[in-house]
């Protein structure tokens, strides 16, 4: 890998992030509601609102506001929460681990089950395993996370009372949110694994391996799996991004103390600095994950070098 490729990719990533920050900044500006008034409270006088507006530099020009916002963001200052008065960065830092832990656990579970499921389906196309995979895929991808989450709560927490419905106190409280979050990814990963594997098994080099007299297990694992992994890794990486960003609903349903719930709370409270901060953090993580996925190709496939 040449350094110039890395520089190119990083430049691209920075441009993306700049775009996101402009978008986030303008989006908040375009929203109805005056942040100064929210902070000041309903009873505040006109002078008080004006003072807060000046404090927040809301009276300045749009471009100047943006450069201030960007400069602050770069130094880790994402502003102050309008609601709690704490620094936004600190609020996010407190909530981020819960989200990341849940997403990583979910993707781990989804990868394990999904790849295994997909491999079995590819090994025996049009078998019972294969058909149940399709059924499961359709089911999982047509069920919205909040609905599945509620369903799981009703069954396991309310009906049978074997698992907690919310919180993050015991290890058992991880089970339902993980399952909810992983369900869709399992289906997707299984489907991609199956398709990639079937495609690989049709390749000429698989025939070459068989012509060498290699056992079916060897053909399948040494020659099939490694080649099929590339598209699977792509999906896993992108799914992890999705899970971190897509955990919002799951976190709300299970009262999970992550940044997804922080975002929802901030939206209801019109807490603009927090909204901005959370979205920026999301964008950063997704850009970073994409970068990691791309770079991981070079390790998996010798044909790809940058």
């Amino acid at each position: 890998m040449s350094g110039s490729y890395l520089v190119q990719r990083l430049t691209g990533a920075l441009i993306t992030l700049l775009g996101v920050s402009i978008f986030v900044f303008l989006m908040v500006k375009a929203l109805p509601g005056d942040p100064a008034r929210v902070i000041a409270g309903v009873d505040a006088t006109v002078e008080e609102v004006a003072r807060i507006r000046e404090e927040l530099k809301l009276d300045q020009g749009l471009f100047q506001q943006f450069t201030t916002f960007l400069g602050d963001a770069l130094t880790g200052n994402l502003g102050t929460s309008a609601k709690s008065g704490n620094p936004v960065a600190a609020e996010i830092a407190a909530r981020l681990p819960a989200t990341v832990q849940l997403a990583v656990l979910a993707i781990g579970v989804a990868t394990f089950i999904g790849v295994l499921f997909g491999l079995f389906a590819a090994l025996r196309p049009n078998s019972l395993v294969d058909y149940s995979l399709s059924a499961f895929t359709i089911g999982a991808s047509s069920m919205p996370a909040f609905w599945l989450g509620l369903l799981l709560i009703i069954v396991f927490a309310v009906q049978f009372q074997v698992l907690p419905a919310s919180g993050k106190d015991t290890w058992t409280s991880w089970i339902l949110p993980t399952a909810t979050l992983a369900a869709f990814s399992v289906a997707l990963i299984a489907r991609v694994t199956r398709a990639a594997m079937l495609e690989i098994l049709r390749q000429d080099y698989i025939r070459t391996a068989r012509a060498k007299g290699a056992s079916e297990r060897r053909v399948f694992i040494r020659h099939g799996l490694r080649n099929a992994l590339l598209p699977v890794i792509t999906v896993i990486g992108l799914q992890l991004g999705q899970l971190i960003g897509g955990a919002v609903l799951t976190e709300v349903v299970f009262s999970w103390p992550g940044i997804g719930r922080l975002l929802v709370e901030a939206i209801f409270a019109r807490d603009f600095p927090v909204i901005q901060g959370v979205i920026l953090v999301y964008a950063m993580m997704i850009v970073l994950l994409n970068l990691l996925v791309d770079l991981s190709y070079t390790l998996l496939d010798p044909r790809i070098s940058y």
Partner: peptide
Amino acid sequence: IFQEPLTSLNPVM
């Protein structure tokens, strides 16, 4: 010995 030398070898080995 097969026809397509370009595809009859495993690309990642």
